[in-house]
Amino acid sequence: MSAAFSGSLAIVDTDDGQMIACQSCERPLVATGQPWKPNAAVKELPMHGAGGGAYESADHVVLRQFYCPGCGALLDTETAMSDDPFLNDVINV
């Protein structure tokens, strides 16, 4: 691995160039310069109760979770309403 993209994602050198990959299993997700979330596994939980009893949110609020499709590591989360777009982060290296 050559650099970090976040605490859960790394930037790795591959035969196809630099890719954003899962830090846990090194599975490449997308080339740098592109949003990675469309290539992750996505699940939306009701925010209500998501982190324990203090999470008393309304029904329309979800905890969006992005997993590595290779190992199931949790890569990122978003507080969202279901029809809101992903928050995309792009790095240019």
């Binding site: 859960s8 982190g51 949110s57 609020v61 905890l63 590591a73 990122d76 989360t77």
Partner: peptide, 12 residues
């Protein structure tokens, strides 16, 4: 709405 967002997979 939780407002204290997490990072890198952390929950709000």
């Amino acid at each position: 709405f939780p407002m204290s967002e997490g990072l890198a997979g952390g929950y709000p």
